[in-house]
Amino acid sequence: MKKVVFASGAVLMLTLGSAQTPVLAQEKTLTISVYALAQDEYKQIVYDPFEKICGCKLVVETGNSVERLAKMEANKANPVVDLAAVSMADALAASRAGLIDKIDTAKLQSFDKLYDIAKDPNGDGMSVGYTFYATSIAYRSDKMKIESWADLLKPEYASHIAWPNVTTNQGPPALYMLGQALGKDTPDLKGAIEAVGESKDDIVTFYEKSSQLVQLMKQEEIWAAPIGRFTWAPFAKLGLPVAWAMPKEGQTGGMNVMILTKGSKNRDLALQFMDFWLSTEVQTKLAEKMIDSPANRQVKVSDEVAGNLTYGEETAKSLKLIPSAVALDNRAGWVKSWNETVGQ
């Protein structure tokens, strides 16, 4: 019996092992790593048309920015991914870790059409922005009035708000704006974290997943929360009087960028893909489906679509973004002081 057991195990492993080898070795394959957002639409608008143009196979890995970066780091010696879409700060982290190469923007026909802030967000030539978003406060206009980021912490409001956890993409920007509202805007965000800490027993939750907020808003668990504009659409559809705040300190936000892996064997294909994604045609389609706000300034959309996006040069310029280097150098410190003040 023992032999049978061994043999069947070995056979199973062999079949599994052989399933790993690429089916068509001669076919060109481009591997990209992106956010899990709206993959069905991406497939239709970006991936399938690109496969037709390049005559190659596109393999897509999805997940959140940090996890995918951790994997790129682990696979450093033998990179799997050719091109990745990550946050601005993670792009800088990747560059510092020596995981990525400079982008040869001369090969990108769409490059000149981009908003200036998207051309080289980190100033190191290693990334190109493909979309950006505003972060502000979604709130119940019948229950409260939000004119400043600091209004959220008013005693009568604090027990009805959710605040993004410092570990989310919205956490640090929201704290950054709160710091400005309180007149305590240091890079370590200490003033803002302390202010949140004082209200921590009142605040309903420190959310991790923004998708949870729609549920909480519907259940009247919360009246307000700082969110990214890309999650706005479901709030607008709730059938409740939910408004997008325009605080006097302004809106913050973030940008997502594309990077090229060092040691990738498909550089030209990756550049071709990047160019395609940044093209006016593709960026317009993504905007019309309300998936990504365009980084390409030639994109024109209807007012209705624009209302659901972060659209236009003026908006793009007005966003108060945390510089990547500040985010990266302080991230561990933010988490530490957040945990000590809020997590305890």
Partner: peptide, 10 residues
């Protein structure tokens, strides 16, 4: 804990 603790309860 991540969802039901709302990150208030690490």
């Amino acid at each position: 804990p991540a969802i039901l603790g709302g990150s208030k309860v690490l």
